[in-house]
Design a protein around this nucleic acid. Sequence first.
DNA 1: GAATGTTGTAATCGAATGATTACTTAATTC
DNA 2: GAATTAAGTAATCATTCGATTACAACATTC
Lengths: 221, 221
Amino acid sequence: MSDATASSTSRVGPPTTRMGSDARRELVLEAATSVFGQRGYAGTTTDQVAAAAGVSQPYVVRIFGTKENLFLAVLKRALDLLLTAFRAALADESEIPVGRRLSLAYVDLLTDRGLLLSLMHGFVLGADPEIGRVARCGFLDVYRFLKNEAGFSPVEAAEFLAHGMLMNTLVGLRMTDDYDKDADARELLEGALQSKLALLLEVTNSPAVSNSPAVSTSTAS
Amino acid sequence: MSDATASSTSRVGPPTTRMGSDARRELVLEAATSVFGQRGYAGTTTDQVAAAAGVSQPYVVRIFGTKENLFLAVLKRALDLLLTAFRAALADESEIPVGRRLSLAYVDLLTDRGLLLSLMHGFVLGADPEIGRVARCGFLDVYRFLKNEAGFSPVEAAEFLAHGMLMNTLVGLRMTDDYDKDADARELLEGALQSKLALLLEVTNSPAVSNSPAVSTSTAS
DNA sequence: GAATGTTGTAATCGAATGATTACTTAATTC
DNA sequence: GAATTAAGTAATCATTCGATTACAACATTC
């Protein structure tokens, strides 16, 4: 906090230009996706989300009503982006077979830190009444897409989903952190991701979560 | 609470017989495994664990020092049980091929509610310094078992792990809740679990998590 | 059978956190 | 250009929760 000439309640910087509520909402959703992906639903505070989005904590709460609603919005957005990316990959005519195109689209999404991990956190909270309902429904939507739109058989679809869950888990584990240190980790990543590994390694380089509390409520100047 | 003849500080029931600390520790670990599996690390309170174990909340804390230590102990125990079950399945000579025996052992473990879900919750917390380290190490231990002891190739091991992660996810999602209601859920479960589905359906019938706070600190009489 | 250690609980504390209230200031409208 | 709406924050509250302290009852040893 600069002790400038400003009196206690007057402005410090140049007059802030305002943002439309839709844009602000999307910005908070992106920040929330990142934080929820790292720390899970219960492990994330609205204050951490606010800090990541560069707004105050009460504003985050006011936009979404409750933390649970915010997480549900993150889940729905993630599922929407996932299916949209899959449909784009499907529509994109190419010599590459369908399954491979979808796999590549999936790994592409893994590079959006938090997106698929937030989903994963939701998937293991099926015991929660609200979150569980949305998560089950979303997972089934993906399954139906694979069958009805991509033309997979039930077993092929399960196969595809299994590899997706393994990739999610490896990213959640931050197994890429051990890529240089552990030969088995390297081999596992290569076996699980094969040609898609290089793409993933490029973006997996952010540090571990810090346990120090966010400075909170105050916007970064 | 019975309003018996007891004065405020006197005993109510018969003199409680004590339990050895090892047995008590194991009992608390089992309860913690169940609760962590349902609600995740951050979503679980030491009080919920205490209530599930039938002891007081401070006692849970005293046994394990911190909640994080408790969760780490749950993870290590789960990994130990997993590898022990796998080694038993491997040693058990039979006509059934190795992969199938291990799969059956895995589904057997899924019936211990919470065990594999606690692991799964740990797996997606790789960004946490301590939990992440233990989770990565444990996952790699399983991978090494598959390669070095069960004789899997790297790709076969990844394949096996992928199906394990899908099964974990389906259990975490409580997809079995929709087995009777949704044809796609039924088909997905059958495609993913195949012959092992019947085993899993038998034990998946406990209700959703309640959001009412545990009565806490008081032992059930 | 006192002394001593162990198993266990009741009471409570301090910090963290989701939410609320009241307020400020930038846009927008008439 | 006043009035009104919308974007945003500071301050603060009530709960929750992990942890600590002090104490009680059972077990063991000598």
